[in-house]
C-alpha cells in the first residue's frame, strides 16, 4: 500500500500503523432531534476509532447518514458514512459522496441495502441502479481517477477510505471468498463482516481469504454483536436472514439465568474479540451493539482494546 494516505482518516491511519482497529456503530434517530445522536456519541466516544452511521437500516426511514455523520464529527468523533444502493441512483450517489466528503467525511461503507420489504415503507420503489460492488468501483474511480462514472473530470476529488460489508455465513458459502475478491478488485480498502457467532465457520472463511492473499490487499474487521438476552439470540438465529448462530451458543444463553443473560452475552462477545485478535488476517473488530451503545465501551475494555491509539 502506498505511502500517502488515501483518505487520512483515523481508521485508515490505525490500520496502516498495524494496530488492531476497532469500529462501532450508531443508528440515526427517527426524527430531526440532533440530541439523540449526541447522546449516543457521548456513550461511544473514545471507545473505538470510527463509528458507522447507518443509512436507513432495515429500510426504516431515519435521519440521513450524511447529516448524522456531520453531527458526530461536531462531537469530535470519526464517522463511517454508510451508503446503500437501494434508495439512490448513480446521480444521487455521486452527489452525496461529494457532499459527504466536502463536509469532512473520510470513511464510507458501500452496501446494497436491505430490501424495502422489511421496512416501514414496503410500498416504495427500489432503485438498485448500482450494486455494492459497482458502488465501490464508483467511489474508487472518483477518488483515484478524479472522474465521475460518466467519465467527466472531478475538480476536487473526494478522499475516502472505502469500506464494504461481507457476510461469510450467507449462501452459497463457496462464493463468499470469490465475492470478497471481487470487492477487492473493485477497490475496497476495508471490510466489516456480518456478526460472527459461528467462529469455526468464520475461521474456515478466513483461511480461504488468507490462502488467496486477500488479507494483504484489504483490512478485515470481524463483526461482533453481544446478545442482550436469550430471546434476542433466538430471534437472530431464526429471523435474521444470513445470520448463523450455532446451537451451543443458544444453549449457553438459554442455560444462563435471565438476570445474568446480558452479562453472559457480553462475555461471549469478549471471547469472540480475543479469538479474532489471534486469528491470522483479521485487522480489527467491528462492534455492533444494537441499541445497546453503552456496552461498546465495556466490551472494548474487557477485550483490552482501550485506550484507543491517538494518531
Amino acid at each position: 500500500m502506498s505511502e500517502e494516505y488515501k483518505s487520512g482518516s483515523k481508521l485508515e491511519k490505525v490500520l496502516r500503523a498495524g494496530q488492531f482497529a476497532v469500529t462501532g456503530e450508531c443508528g440515526p434517530p427517527r426524527g430531526a432531534d440532533p440530541e439523540v445522536i449526541k447522546k449516543k456519541c457521548a456513550l461511544l466516544k473514545d471507545k473505538a476509532d470510527a463509528f458507522n452511521i447507518t443509512d436507513n437500516q432495515t429500510s426504516v426511514v431515519r435521519m440521513s447518514s450524511i447529516a448524522s455523520s456531520v453531527i458526530m464529527m461536531q462531537e469530535g468523533m470519526e464517522p463511517v458514512m454508510q451508503m446503500v444502493c437501494r434508495d439512490r441512483n448513480r446521480i444521487a450517489i455521486q452527489s452525496d459522496i461529494l457532499g459527504g466528503a466536502a463536509l469532512g467525511v473520510k470513511n464510507m461503507l458501500c452496501l446494497s441495502g436491505d430490501h424495502q420489504k422489511f421496512g416501514d415503507h414496503p410500498q416504495s420503489k427500489n432503485v438498485f441502479d448500482l450494486d455494492s460492488i459497482q458502488l465501490i468501483h464508483t467511489v474508487k474511480k472518483m477518488r483515484d481517477e478524479h472522474k465521475f462514472l460518466g467519465g467527466d473530470e472531478i475538480k476536487g476529488a473526494p478522499k475516502l477510505f472505502i469500506g464494504a460489508a461481507e457476510n461469510p455465513f450467507a449462501d452459497p458459502f463457496e462464493i463468499r471468498v470469490p465475492r470478497l475478491a471481487k470487492k477487492v478488485a473493485a477497490g475496497v480498502d476495508f471490510i466489516q463482516t456480518q456478526c460472527i457467532f459461528n467462529l469455526p465457520k468464520f475461521e474456515e472463511w478466513m483461511k480461504q481469504v488468507v490462502d488467496r492473499g486477500l488479507h494483504e490487499k484489504v483490512y478485515i474487521l470481524g463483526g461482533v454483536t453481544p446478545f442482550k438476552s436469550f430471546g434476542m439470540a433466538k430471534y437472530m438465529a431464526n429471523n435474521v436472514p444470513g445470520m448463523d448462530v450455532p446451537e451451543e451458543l443458544l444453549k449457553r444463553m438459554k442455560d444462563t439465568p435471565k438476570e445474568k443473560q446480558a452479562e453472559e452475552g457480553i462475555n461471549i462477545a469478549v471471547e469472540t474479540c480475543f479469538k479474532l485478535k489471534e486469528m491470522k488476517g483479521v485487522a480489527g473488530v467491528h462492534l455492533m451493539a444494537i441499541e445497546w451503545e453503552e456496552k461498546v465501551g465495556e466490551i472494548a475494555q474487557k477485550a483490552g482494546f482501550l485506550p484507543r491509539p491517538q494518531l
Binding site: S112, G113, D131, S132, D171, P241
Partner: peptide, 13 residues
C-alpha cells in the same frame, strides 16, 4: 429482488 449484477447479497440463505 435487488437486481444485483455481481453476486448475491448477504441475505441469501
Amino acid at each position: 429482488s435487488k437486481s444485483l449484477l455481481n453476486g448475491p447479497c448477504g441475505g441469501s440463505t
